[in-house]
């Protein structure tokens, strides 16, 4: 079992963040999966002692900055989501691919729900069901990554 390097984690997060920064617009923006959260979930499965709630919170702040919203919204959403991911991490890695997929979908929806709650509290409208489309595309992306050979079922025994 190979060790996961810290640089690998940060590099992948950086790449995911650049994906968020891409000039999305129109339908693509509505469908845009949450790249950063997917990468965080992946690393929480693989290397829970290197990528944890703190990492998620920190990168959440940068996503907040990129979206131009109030500081802390994405940070909170990622914190809550990674918490759920972390407490089930040991079971999660033993799940079959389908089970894992359902669980990832659940995590993505939790993140969006948290964000929605915060937004509604600050006076925004509810956007309708299309708001949850990024969760679906996120799962599709996850499945695509697994199909391309990304190993999500075995954590690296680092340290």
């Amino acid at each position: 079992m190979h060790k996961t390097k810290l640089q690998t984690i940060y590099f992948s997060l950086l790449v995911a963040f650049i994906c968020v920064l891409l000039p999305w617009s129109g339908t693509a923006l509505k469908l845009r999966p949450d790249f950063v959260l997917l990468v965080i979930i992946f690393w929480i499965l693989r290397a829970p002692n290197k990528c944890n709630i703190g990492t998620a919170w920190f990168i959440g702040l940068w996503v907040d900055l990129a979206t131009g919203g109030v500081f802390g919204q994405y940070a909170l959403a990622y914190t809550v989501t990674t918490f759920v991911a972390v407490i089930y991490q040991r079971r999660l890695v033993l799940f079959s691919n389908t089970q894992q997929l359902v669980y990832v979908l659940l995590l993505l929806i939790i993140s969006q729900l948290t964000l929605l709650t915060v937004k509604i509290f600050s006076g925004n409208d509810v956007l309708g069901w299309s708001y949850f489309l990024p969760s679906i595309t996120g799962v599709i992306l996850w499945q695509a990554a697994v199909a391309l050979g990304l190993n999500t079922s075995r954590p690296s025994r680092s340290k």
């Binding site: 002692n49 709630i53 959440g60 109030v70 802390g72 914190t79 407490i87």
Partner: peptide
């Protein structure tokens, strides 16, 4: 054992970072 050692519990981390986020939100808005 060291294999399971993960620092502060997830719940503690959740509480800490959530509080931090909420504080940030309040400060910013």
């Amino acid at each position: 054992p060291a294999f399971f050692a993960r620092g502060p519990s997830p719940l503690a981390r959740l509480a800490f970072f959530s509080a931090l986020s909420l504080a940030l939100m309040a400060t910013d808005s």
